[in-house]
Every structure is written in C-alpha cells, then in structure tokens.
Nucleic acid binder design. Sequence first.
RNA 1: GGAGUGGUAGCUCAGUUGGUUAGAGCGCCUGCCUGUCACGCAGGAGGUCGCGGGUUCGAGCCCCGUCAGCUCCGCCA
Length: 610
Amino acid sequence: MGNAESSQTLNNRFRSDYCGLLNPAREQSTVRLAGWVHRKRDHGGLIFIDLRDHTGISQLVIQPERHELFAQAEHLHIESVICVEGVVVPRAEGAINPKLASGAIEVVLSSLTVESHAQPLPFPVADEVQTSEELRLKYRFIDLRREKIHENIIFRSRIIAAMRHYLEAQNFIEIQTPILTSSSPEGARDFLVPSRLHPGKFYALPQAPQQFKQLLMVSGFPRYFQIAPCFRDEDARADRSPGEFYQLDMEMAFIEQDDLFAILEGMMQHLTTTMSHKRMTQFPFPRISYKEVMNRFGTDKPDLRIPIEIQDVTDLFKDSDFKVFSNNTIQDFCVKALVLKGRGNESRLFYDKADKRALELSAQFGPAYNGLAYIQFREEGPKGPIVKYVLNELPDLKAKLDLETGDVVFFRAGQWAETCKIMGGMRNYFADLFTLDNDELSFCWIVDFPMFEYNEDAKKIDFSHNPFSMPQGEMEALETVPSLDILAYQYDIVCNGIELSSGAIRNHKPEIMYKAFGIAGYSREEVDTRFGHMIEAFKLGAPPHGGIAPGVDRLVMILRDEQNIREVIAFPMNQQAQDLMMSAPSEVTLTQLRELHLKVELPKKDEGKK
RNA sequence: GGAGUGGUAGCUCAGUUGGUUAGAGCGCCUGCCUGUCACGCAGGAGGUCGCGGGUUCGAGCCCCGUCAGCUCCGCCA
C-alpha cells in the first residue's frame, strides 16, 4: 500500500513502526505495530498472522512457548484490530516472501492486545473477490479496507494536494463559497433545501460555484480556485456520480483563452508526470474545433486513441441515382463513411451486430430510421446491400477513402449533427477491435463551440452552453453574423473520451449580455429578473475573466484506470442516488416537516406501499 | 420514463430435457497439525432458489407480473 509515512512514524503506546515499511534495518529492534488481522495461519504449534495497516503487511509469529499469547491468537478472528509488541528478526533463507515488501523479516511477538474483536464479515477484505456493489456500498467502511480502493482514496488525497500546491505556486487563492445558495434558472435540476425562517422559500445546493467565482473576479481576486462540491439532481452514469461530485473550480481575471490553456496544460503535465507513469500523447494539447471534432469523431469528447476517423463523402453523391444518399447532400445534411481496414471478410454476424448498434444509436433521434449501409471489398468484388445502387460512385469512393481489397466501409446519411453522432457512436463501438494503450493520455481541447443552437422542440434559438460565455467577435458578431454561426469562447478539455471539464472566457459586458439573451428570446426585463445580481455586478466594474473546472473524480478515474467513478469516491451513492450505508434519502418526522412548513404529497402509485 | 443484463448458502458461482433429499470453492463451527504466507488434513452447521401469481402429476428451470442492483438512452457539462 502507500508509503507516505516513511520517515515520520508516530511512536506511541500503539505503534512504533508501520507494517508495510518494516525492513531488515530494524532487525533485532523491539517494535510495536497496530492494525487489522489480514490473514491467520494456525499450524497448531505455531501461528502466523499477517497484520495489515494502511502501509501494507507484516508477518507476525506466535510461538507456543508463550502459552497465554498463543491461546489469545488461536481465537483471533480475521479483521480484528490488535496492537502487538515483538522483535524484528530476519527470516530463514527459504522463508523469505518476495511478494511482501516486508517479506525479508518477521516479528516474533511478546505481547498482543485485542482492541476490537471482529465478527465474521459480510465479504472478505484479503481476497479481493468480485462482490456485488450493493453489498460493498452498504458496508463501505469494510470495502475501503481493500487494497485497490484504499489506494484510490490515498491517491485522490495526494492529487488534490498536488493541485493545491501547484495552484498556490501560481498565485491562486483558495476561497470557499456557499453550499446553501439560490436556485439557478439554467442547467441541471437543483437540490432544494426548505427554509425554516422563510416559509415557502427554498435554498438550492450549487450546481457549481459559477456565479460566485465570477463575482470573486469582480471583487478583485485575480486567480481563484476551490475543490468545490457540486450538486446536480440528475441521473447517474458510470462516469457521472449521482447527486454530488467535485470540481477543481478555477477562474482568472485579465486572461484570454490561450493564457488559460497554458496554465491548465502546465498543471495537467505536472500532475501526470509527478503522480503517474502515464504518457501524454501530445503536448501542448491539440485543439480541435467543435465542427471538426463532430466531423472527424462524431462526439465532442473523442477518444483520440481509437485509430479510425469518420470521413465525409457527401460531395461524391451529389448527383447519385441512389436517392437515400443524394437526398442528403443539401445544406445541413451529409453522407458520412467509416472505414475498417481488413474487416471486409468478417462473418455476417459482425455486420448484423454493427447494424443493430447503429439502430440503437439512432433511436434517440426518432423511430423512423433505417440501419447502417456498408460495402465489403472482397476478392470477388464489392459486396453489400447497397452496392448495386452506387456502382457509378465506387471508383471515386475507393480513391477518396483509400479502400483496398479486404476493407469494409460503413455509411450513414442524414441531418448533419445526428449523422455525426451516430457515426461517432459506431466509432466507439468499433474501438473494441483495437487495443488502446491505457498508459497513454490523449488530452485535447475542443474549441469554437457555437454560441447558439436551434431548439427543435421549442422552435426557438437557445444558448448551446453557458449563457455567460463571451461570443467571439463580441457585439459586432451578435449584430452582423447569422446567430447560429456565431462561435463562443467556450471550450472543453477531454482525455481518452472522457470530458474533464467545460470552461469559457466570460461575457463581462452588460450590453453584450442583453443582446445575447435577446437573440435567445429573453427581454431586458427578464434578464434583469433572472440574473439581476450578475448584471448589476458587471455594471459596477468587472474585469475580463474566464475559467474552467476539471472534474476531480474523473481525473482520478483516468489516472487510476477505473471504469466507474464510484471506485474513486469514499462514500458514493448508488445509481438511484441512495446512500445504502446511511440510508439516505430517508423520511423525516412530522415535527421536522411542520417546522419547515412542508406537507408531503406522495405520487398516487406509491400509495398503499409499506 | 425507456432498453439491456444478471438475481440460487455469509461471499463467488454451477445447476442437464421440468423429475428423488438443490451442489462446489471460500468463509463459519469442532478436532488435528512447529515454517506457513490463498498453509494443510478430517468432520459439521448453514438454503423462503429476490417476491407474487400461473401452467404442470411435479417448477431453481417454462409463462405473466413485480421488486432491487448494474450498464446504456432520455436527462446532465
């Protein structure tokens, strides 16, 4: 396990040394150790105990001559907490255990105190056998004893310390912002907290300290950071913890996008080189525009390690007789291709499964979608359901996509964003065909996000990201460029297909803000009502500023090769946002409700339960 | 809200075409064992097969419903 305590062992009545750090240098010394009984091997005439603390394991030996000690040890249960005293001795030649850091020595006990008798555990600590997550979460305090997750939590602490260290050296100031604040009209669903002193009114837990950090810029703190808890009442995913998560929230005044990129790249380089053995594929991180990333990878969080890219073949089908394609060559529509080298001779099942996946990916855009067209380039010629319709285009296609015998190309035609997303989903689906190097960190910046997007449901223009982002070209752009073509100083940092953070250069000019909100359909009065305090602040002397807020949990996840965010959080909730250990959420007493002026009205289908 | 996936002993899992008393490894209990390190050996206890209903002479297995877990979509930066 960890070795942070190496030189500074606390010497008291419980221990003088740590199990994992004990070595031949301490031979013949009398030491005190304290920890958990990891394993016990009772030979009848001799007992071995593997004692575990958070640094590792030491082997204790109990000899039969010490009758009282022996009797005590015989009845010890695994995972009991004991404090022992004994002499460090070298192990015999053949008895050295190379698998143990302390394997060259052992401790012959002279005394043993049981601090806590452990009953049989619901699941083993020493054997890290797969255990249902439900059980692990219910007994999280036991689960956290297990080496892998214990190390994750220690690593998390160290990386947060490294972040602080780095940012403080860069003159950042850490400032705490409120946890009880007000509900914000945009973004995710809020967690609400009823107010006792103000009947009928509610606090909200912050989705992020977004407005506070911008106001701190107005207050004249040029560089702010915080390991900030963020609360969002939205459903969980493997990389999205339910309810709450932590961001390294940052904001800086008098900076431009490039300044921020340099600082964050510097920090990421520092963290990855000092905290892991992983390599950054490219440094500084490549920058890819939103439009380009959608065209090439079909997602705004691409895993650049996957060695295939989506290609555009719209132009080839402008005059095609194949209407399925040629109908999609007009403005805002496209025909996209994805080539798999050497996969043209797979079984029918291979293509059918791919087709099925494409249908799943299409489902989110509506029911009336067909599957995935493909052409296999085989020895005997091109093969596939659509070959006969595109014979005219085949030569150009082969030239443009560099197709050879043995390859297969998949097609998708339709509205631009949808088609890109479906093909991006297929690119991820095919990622399994390649071995991705987990020791490679492929960071990139996604830049030039559109400021606005068209909301089909509401039939109006919406902000596509943070409404407080500065439009590129500022007021002039808002007045002269078609709204949907305006770009924002809005960026994401992505690593290996995981979005670490969004950020933006903010809009600190009230007039530009009113104009931008106007394009999204908000009157001056509405903006004043909803964001009055922000606008007000920006009217009273606001510096240009911008920031970002990398997800701490996600960064730890990537650096520790974890597929699930709950593996790097000490006490996470389950997918249904329940804390199985603490039984949260839970009902409260009528008295508590009355005090808060609340009355619970359950949904009908829940009536009659319990 | 929707889709997928598994739910059998404390834990991890097996369970044949629907057929007698539901099995294994680990753990637990008892006994033996002085050099193990996943110690070994012998014996024992431990089961509402998630829950409810149905089909059947007979259901862990088939059908319907339902509950809880995880993954994905919606949602979320």
